[in-house]
Amino acid sequence: MTQDQWTIVADVASAVCLLGGAFLAFAAGVGVLRFPDLLARMHAGTKPQTLGLALVLIGLALRLRSGGAVWALVLVAVFQMLTAPVAAHMVGRAGYRTGKVRSDLLVVDELTSDQERAQVRDQGRPDDDGPRD
């Protein structure tokens, strides 16, 4: 294939990736609006968002096709994948500790029952001091 044909193939592939990425970002927005619960909304914020961003970056790399900027895009994707679960985890933990999670909407809630069991156990031992963890 000639150079021009490769260019066209790369452009088409890039357009497909950009479309897929934008669609997933749109799905993330819809998800965060529609889901019933704080914890469910966090799912919308991490999974489609991360893959959507990765697809858009692949589309951009296919368009740029050269240069050092492409390596920086790999870094952007890696950073996004490293930091999104951390942010979601901290928000979920804060939600539990401040009572924003409603146990009645969940089918099974083992964290609350484990925390209650730990509290009962702690109250039986009055000389146990210091925070847990």
């Binding site: 950009l18 934008a22 970002a25 704080l38 909304r41 966090m42 914020g45 959507g52 961003l53 858009v56």
Partner: peptide
């Protein structure tokens, strides 16, 4: 969470412009 999604959408939009 919602504003986090807005920031990531901004990244995607800037990448779209660069593409």
């Amino acid at each position: 969470i919602a504003l986090d999604i807005v920031v990531t959408t901004m990244i995607a939009a800037v990448a779209l412009y660069a593409a």
